[in-house]
């Protein structure tokens, strides 16, 4: 085409315009498929599960004789496992992250450890289950118990906690550290008064997401914490709490869902549990977002 003849309205050839259009429709289509899937999935779970949900279902222990169905034991077991895991994993994970970013001076060792935690973070959870059974249930003599489950989940969530804490420590400007040290602060004083307060939002968000992983985990807990649907003798004292951790075994919500669906083919109850899990996931995500923005420094 001659230079003078070229006008702005035929800037794109027909072929290029067709190509552009087809790519655009493909992208729209994939977005539409994803949205449809999501809506269908959530809609279907709610549709099947909600009719079966009742206060009694949430607040009672099942009894074949009385003909009562209930997931209270699973709710309580989930709570136990979440609390016990967090109590162990938080000091360990946040502590190692602080060591790795603030104290360790051997860069090679640090990158080796970081590589290892990344690998661990990507490991299938069934492997943690296997190790948990051998180390905690058998070797440490905990048997199948909530505590063995919690320990196994500690292994599983530790890399995540370390990574997220490290990431958020790294966002703290170096100038804060210098400022604190230049005033004669010791290293731990600096970490405690300047670094941790400025990174607490990221650390809390990481923890909340770890809670999400704990609540959603099933394989590890089936192996190590048991599958029973009975209620542990629960009490309100601290002593009772620890006793239960050692003594009782039982299904958490995800494992209960498995029980209902796979062992008993009771899909109504399974879907009702799924609704509860969905609600928990929703709450956890909201909490993570809120923690991220509310705890943001000044």
């Amino acid at each position: 085409m001659d230079r003078e003849q070229m006008s702005i309205c035929c800037g794109l050839s027909r072929r290029r315009r067709a190509y552009d259009l087809s790519m655009r429709s493909l992208l729209y289509a994939s977005a539409a498929v994803i949205c449809a899937l999501l809506v269908f999935l959530i809609g279907y779970i709610l549709f099947r599960g909600i009719p079966h949900l009742s206060w009694q279902f949430l607040s009672s222990e099942e009894s074949v004789i009385k003909g009562i169905e209930g997931i209270l034991p699973a709710l309580i077991n989930t709570l136990y496992v979440v609390i016990a895991t967090l109590i162990i994993v938080l000091p360990l994970g946040v502590g190692s992250a602080i060591y790795l970013t603030e104290y360790a001076s051997n860069r090679k060792l640090v990158s080796a450890i970081e590589f290892a935690t990344e690998t661990l973070a990507g490991m299938p959870s069934i492997i943690f289950a296997l190790v948990g059974v051998i180390v905690f249930c058998e070797f440490a003599g905990l048997g199948t118990s909530l505590l063995a489950g919690a320990f196994s989940l500690v292994m599983m969530t530790l890399p995540t906690i370390i990574r997220t804490t490290q990431e958020s420590l790294k966002t703290v400007p170096q100038s804060y550290r210098e400022g604190s040290l230049a005033l004669g602060g010791g290293k731990w004083h600096m970490v405690r008064t300047v670094v941790l307060p400025s990174s607490v939002d990221g650390i809390v968000t990481g923890c909340i997401l770890a809670v999400g992983r704990i609540v959603g985990e099933s394989a590890v807990l089936m192996f190590t914490a048991g599958m029973g649907m009975r209620l542990a003798k629960y009490g309100h004292s601290f002593g009772q709490f620890f006793e239960n951790l050692f003594d009782s075994s039982g299904a958490t919500l995800t494992v209960a869902l498995y029980n209902y669906a796979k062992e008993r083919a009771d899909f109504e109850s399974a879907f009702a549990v799924a609704v509860v899990l969905l609600a928990i996931a929703f709450v956890i995500n909201i909490a993570a977002k809120l923690a991220g923005s509310k705890l943001k420094k000044h």
Partner: peptide, 20 residues
Amino acid sequence: VTSLRRQIGMVFQKANPFPM
């Protein structure tokens, strides 16, 4: 070092107040 830095204070190139 901490008591040395207490006696020899420093102001940096970029203002670095703490987020407090």
